[in-house]
């Protein structure tokens, strides 16, 4: 193996590794919990308007009330959120935000965004409460024994399907 080909092959290998890291970064999926609960930032309590319509990345908008949470599945680090306020002052706010790569579930606080809080406070990590409150994700548990399932027909999805 000539040194030139060794060099080129190393480049290709490194290229693959770099590509993998990149794909990991831009493909990482996140569970966004759009949250309209009141938050306190820097001593100030911020609340969400009565009714809003929220759209992530240009997808169809969902309407939300004051103390709700909806689940949105996204992929990648950078996203946009469009909040259209329907009650009180009509305004539409569109902001870009970035989810840290290793944050699987992120709470996006609508009041923080609307209240012009500093961007670092918009996104917080979601921690599942210890016992009672049912987590937003409803995964059904499978039977334990691996059975030989017949070749799957296109309808069986297995995992529960929360609102996409």
């Amino acid at each position: 193996m000539t040194s030139r080909s060794l060099f080129q092959r190393s480049c290709v290998l490194l290229g693959f590794i770099a590509l993998s890291v990149y794909l990991f970064y831009i493909g990482k999926g996140h569970m966004l919990l759009i949250d309209t609960n009141a938050v306190t930032i820097n001593g100030k309590e911020l609340r969400s308007p009565e009714t809003i319509e929220v759209s992530i990345d240009g997808k169809p908008a969902e309407s939300m009330g004051r103390a709700e949470r909806i689940l949105v599945l996204v992929g990648g680090p950078k996203h946009s959120i469009t909040i259209e306020v329907l009650s009180g002052e009509d305004k539409t706010v569109e902001k870009q935000f970035t989810i840290p790569t290793f944050m699987d579930s992120a709470v996006v606080s609508v009041p923080a965004i609307l209240g012009d809080a500093p961007p670092e406070s918009w996104i917080t990590t979601f921690t599942a409460p210890p016992v009672e409150e049912a987590p937003a994700e409803q995964m059904q548990h499978e039977q334990d024994t691996p059975e030989a399932a017949a070749q799957a027909s296109p309808d069986a999805t297995g995992a529960g399907q929360p609102k996409p």
Partner: peptide, 21 residues
């Protein structure tokens, strides 16, 4: 693996292909 790491979309497929290589 990519399902475990929750890599979605085309990047997820590409990464799965690279892992399988």
């Amino acid at each position: 693996f990519i399902t475990d790491w929750n890599i979605v979309g085309i990047p997820g497929l590409l990464l799965a292909m690279i892992i399988s290589l």
